[in-house]
Design a protein around this nucleic acid. Sequence first.
DNA 1: AATGAATGAGCATTCATTCAT
DNA 2: CATGAATGAATGCTCATTCAT
Lengths: 207, 207, 207, 207
Amino acid sequence: MDREKRKEQILDCAKKLFAEHGYYQAQISDIIRDANIARGTFYRYFTNKKDIFVTLLENFYERWVSEVSLKRKMMDLETIPPEEHFRHRVQQSLQFFAGDPYLSRIFLRMGLGLPPDMENTIKRLENQILELIVKDLNLGIKHNNIPSDIDVTVTANLLIGATLRIAYYYFAEPAKQGGAVKDVEAITDEICRIVLPGLFLKHTGAK
Amino acid sequence: MDREKRKEQILDCAKKLFAEHGYYQAQISDIIRDANIARGTFYRYFTNKKDIFVTLLENFYERWVSEVSLKRKMMDLETIPPEEHFRHRVQQSLQFFAGDPYLSRIFLRMGLGLPPDMENTIKRLENQILELIVKDLNLGIKHNNIPSDIDVTVTANLLIGATLRIAYYYFAEPAKQGGAVKDVEAITDEICRIVLPGLFLKHTGAK
Amino acid sequence: MDREKRKEQILDCAKKLFAEHGYYQAQISDIIRDANIARGTFYRYFTNKKDIFVTLLENFYERWVSEVSLKRKMMDLETIPPEEHFRHRVQQSLQFFAGDPYLSRIFLRMGLGLPPDMENTIKRLENQILELIVKDLNLGIKHNNIPSDIDVTVTANLLIGATLRIAYYYFAEPAKQGGAVKDVEAITDEICRIVLPGLFLKHTGAK
Amino acid sequence: MDREKRKEQILDCAKKLFAEHGYYQAQISDIIRDANIARGTFYRYFTNKKDIFVTLLENFYERWVSEVSLKRKMMDLETIPPEEHFRHRVQQSLQFFAGDPYLSRIFLRMGLGLPPDMENTIKRLENQILELIVKDLNLGIKHNNIPSDIDVTVTANLLIGATLRIAYYYFAEPAKQGGAVKDVEAITDEICRIVLPGLFLKHTGAK
DNA sequence: AATGAATGAGCATTCATTCAT
DNA sequence: CATGAATGAATGCTCATTCAT
């Protein structure tokens, strides 16, 4: 268990450094300095640089799956109004990114030219996010809440792009320009206000 | 003029490689191999690696200014309906990114940890895009087309995030998953369909 | 302590190479080959090429201060005849250069165009040597052993030039032309023979 | 003849640059920039970098032969008192170096590690100077003006070292510390004052 | 387990020289 | 003769990884 703790500590230092300097510019030397361990010790916990980066990404991925993806399934579409359902998801996503700004930064500003493993992990997460939203949209269509002739892929990308961008802008940038960090709640409201009218069909009183 | 041509050729090769492998992984050796020039020749045209990358970025920046930013000002808000105005801008932006997939890829997947000059160039372009949209939104509010209580910064980021993401997804990814490359026109319609209703006030018949 | 030993060994190899080929022509590749270490190992001990060269120079400088400059102060001008005093200094200087021919060679044939740090270290040593001699001459003048109307700067330069040249000729040149390496003692005698009569006032019997 | 002029001009620029930055740090690029000629033009006048440097050195060498070495032979040892003879030589040498500070600087601060040709040219000049002085000293001994038991090589090196050092100090250093540039005449007097008494035998009244 | 000295492939950059125009 | 674009061998330095202690 002590070993696990140490590993966590190294991961934390690495996360911070990767978030600040990116994969190539964050060096093993920096990590072991910040983690206060010897060079060789690092390699007792991670096989190589790629490994620690992928570990970080996988953690992020798993957390996303459990905190956003799985939770969403639990929500009962039957009882909750669809707009409220949508709202919850946006809020959950923003909350997730706000919860770990360093990892968000790493994920949201992933550069080109990373080793294939990493690219794959990222692609995997991105695709899963995309698919989840597409599934949601299709569900909305099936339930007659969303018009059946929208392009779900474009729409899903629109929603993802908007959400990630806002998450990056408000939670992952080091020096925030707009003064105080915005409230997740308030941002969620704003997003819904713009997107909901075009996305959901108006429910006429009598159903 | 011949010199200009050669420089262009080197830039083209570099662009492709940066788009594929990113800044750090695209090596001078690759560039000179692809451009079929000697090592020293490269340094006759660019002072260093950073220089060629920044040049690429600046080109992109200038083209954006002239092709999107400037053109937008010319549109007459008085005669064109505001929704149509918005539609044009989205279309222009998508068209711009579609026009140079390589550069778009470089720009849209810019990694962390780049030399400060580059970060600045990127930040500059991003901020200018943001400001332009904010200005547009404020104009819409002033003209009573957009509700005055929206958060313009959140909304602008939403629009940028959505547009860039879609541009990246459809035009800058090397292996397209969804089959044929989508039509700019069609995507524009889709975006407008989702966003317009929530963004613009309904004009009641009697004005 | 082992680390110190290794550093010393690298310095020794570098000294030899710098003495033979000068700063620019002695390459890191040569040093690591002669020192039988890997490229990276060199940079564990010295931050760069300049560093190892300056280290060599500083060593030389410090040794000169302790072996020649400080020792000289200890000599009692009251009890020792001034000519004898002068003789000691010449001998000490020659001994110093003879003691480390490689470093002497580096120091005595320092080329133009070296990085400023090095130039400064050299200038510092040269000036200190000059000042020490000027001080000595002034002391001789005060004690009425040296005529008060000599130009101390010209004289000091004359003595330095003569000494360094002879040191270089007899101790620092790789292929000795004149057969056997001369004895420090004998050379000292010769120098004194030429210079003393013109430098020191004749002490008439009754003082 | 125009060609000769152009060559001279290039040599002048190169001389200045070599004097300032040394052989390795003075680049062809600098020379052609200062000489205001094209890259290729340089190579029409000199086969390579070494060539122009050696040319400079050879010029210096030849000038020394004609201005110092040859002139000295013409002086009649029979009619001129030996001390006066010595004085002339010192003055001539100083004058020579004072006459071309740039070249003096190049010659007097020649670094280690130069291509063999150059080393040879330098050695040749140095040896010739040495030999000339040795010959002079031997002549003095033969004429009974100089004690026969001095070590001519040590003495010659002493004289050369002293003279070159003073020449460098007063004429070849860019920023002179001691205020105004000293007069050749005055320096000569000073040197003679120190060295003559020990070098020359006292001529007793009756010869 | 922990350490940190040693490693060496790899990279950006320089600069004297060539040669087609 | 003059030009200057092109060349590429050579060099200093970096940094992820290994391994003996």
